[in-house]
Design a protein around this nucleic acid. Structure first.
Length: 452
RNA sequence: GGCGACGUGGCCGACUGGCUUAGGCACGGGCCUGCAAAGCCCUUUAACCGAGUUCGAUUCUCGGCGUCGCCUCCA
């Protein structure tokens, strides 16, 4: 059983399944108005790891993650660039999933778009209006947060305290709001803006309504887990919840939030990487698995620095695992039970991936020792356990890359030269293979090649 | 101003009131190797400051200093 920190209760507690053996998750997805940045990468990787781990333990996961394809930012960009807003949304969505695929993030089971749920959103707002939990102003329909007794639950703060401090901030929308915390459900559109019909006039849905509608629509009431970045905790998730509560609906039973990617010591990272916050840039320069590894070695609730040093460390750590995988790929056996138990214990403890990685690296070392000692049996069971763990965390081991025939010929010649103690030729052949992009290991058993 | 995190060895980063240690990366030494590579072994060295609780605190409490997040754009 996975124990997971729950933001609502501020404690680690079991992640309960509404239907045993199944887990329903809603993850707030991107607003598609630009390329994803490394923060998006972190969030999706964290939940990808959660999902894969659950699936690995035999749980059927339904993961709904929306696309916010209508939003002020999209409209602003469309206006700025004189392009159709839909064109921007679609292209950005394409880039999003392309980046996710490169990261090895599995596509969610459901990807609803806000624009596909406008009717249902209007219906939800109408229900709120009918219950007098929403009211009209000159620029839209607003949620009356005062009807929600425990508003502030996720923020862990009383609403009046929150307001007390924000003095120098502009309160959006409106002197017409009944309370500064009230938020917009439906925005009346200005001429030329995308719009949909509603009982109150042409307009578009506010950000906070779409996720309530889509989560309840696809997962139903009382779904298991709602997750997203820590910044979504308030106001977005608070506001989603407020709407559900106002309508008397059973909303998410568990709330999970991941920590941020934080600034590095500036210059190193930015000079070497250009725009470091851009995910495609990062993926162009580094093995995508390195980012996953870096995150695995940090707890999901802690902030993580993504800098050159960190990523290099992960790249190097990965290289060790890859060469391990290459030398043990032919060994199969029942995975070592104690190792997997230790792994599960760490993962079940609020997804403690840093400790789980400790288990993994330790297993790699033990298997390497066993290989060196010629203890094939232990090597096989421990390395099988390593492969299992890698499946559970979504880490693809780099063993499958084909060695082409020419390289194989060179390797054979290299073995021959070494057998004849013609080391000058052997060294030349090795250099040639390395130039072709191979890691070359010359052992007593012969030469092994691995693509760099 | 409110709320909340955090401050661990060269870097990153876990656990933990004492027991032998996280783990990764980097540095150094060694074994292995024709030489490399890979692998293994060893080494180095810790808990911001102060007070308190305790037989004993990096771990609990309080205070200080510092960093960061949220307080209606935001993964």
């Amino acid at each position: 059983m996975l124990n997971l920190y729950d933001t609502a209760t501020a404690q680690i507690r079991p992640l309960k399944q509404r239907v045993p053996g199944e887990l329903s998750i809603y993850l707030c997805g991107p607003t598609v108005y630009g390329p994803p940045h490394i923060g998006h990468g972190r969030a999706t990787l964290v939940y990808d790891i959660l999902r894969r781990y659950l699936e690995w333990t035999g749980v059927a996961v339904r993961l709904v993650s929306n696309i916010t394809d209508i939003d002020d930012k999209i409209i602003d960009r469309a206006t700025r660039e004189s392009r159709p807003w839909l064109d921007i949304a679609q292209k950005c969505e394409h880039v999003w999933f392309e980046s996710m695929a490169r990261l090895g993030v599995k596509r969610p089971t459901d990807v609803p778009r806000a624009t596909e749920y406008v009717d249902q959103i209007v219906g939800l707002i109408a229900d709120l209006v009918a219950k007098e939990a929403a009211y009209r102003t000159d620029d839209g329909i607003y949620m009356n947060t005062s009807v929600v007794a425990d508003y502030g639950l996720l923020a862990h703060q009383k609403i009046d305290d929150m307001l007390a401090g924000g003095g120098d901030r502009n309160v959006f929308g409106a002197d017409q709001k009944k309370h500064p915390a009230d938020f917009v459900l439906w925005k009346f559109s200005k001429p030329g803006e995308p719009s949909w019909p509603s009982p109150w006039g042409e307009g578009r849905p506010g950000w906070h309504s779409e996720c309530v509608v889509m989560s309840l629509e696809l997962l139903g009431e009382g779904f298991d887990l709602h997750c997203g970045g820590a910044d979504l905790r308030f106001p977005h998730h608070e506001n989603e919840r407020a709407q559900a509560v106002a309508l008397g609906k059973d909303f998410a039973h568990h709330w999970m939030h991941n920590g941020f990617v934080v600034d590095t010591e500036g210059e190193k990272m930015s000079k070497s990487l250009g725009n470091v916050t851009n995910l495609p840039d990062l993926l162009d320069r580094y093995d995508a698995r390195a980012y996953r590894m870096l995150l695995l070695q940090t707890h999901y609730r802690s902030p993580v620095k993504v800098g050159l040093d960190n990523i290099d460390a992960s790249v190097n750590a990965l290289a060790g695992i890859d060469s391990f995988a290459a030398r043990t790929s032919s060994l199969t056996a029942t995975p070592d039970v104690a190792t997997l138990d230790a792994f599960r214990a760490a993962m079940n403890d609020d997804l403690n991936t840093p400790v789980a990685m400790g288990v993994l690296f330790d297993a790699v070392r033990r298997a390497n020792v066993a290989v060196d000692a010629g203890d094939t049996q232990s090597a096989a069971s421990v390395s099988s356990a390593v492969r299992e763990m890698c499946i559970a965390i979504g880490l693809q081991l780099d063993v499958a890359k084909a060695v082409d025939a020419d390289a194989q010929t060179l390797a054979t010649a290299l073995d021959k030269a070494r057998a004849a103690k013609d080391f000058a030729t052997a060294d030349a052949l090795r250099a040639e293979l390395q130039a072709l992009g191979y890691f070359v290991e010359t052992t007593k058993a012969g030469t092994t090649l691995r693509r760099a």
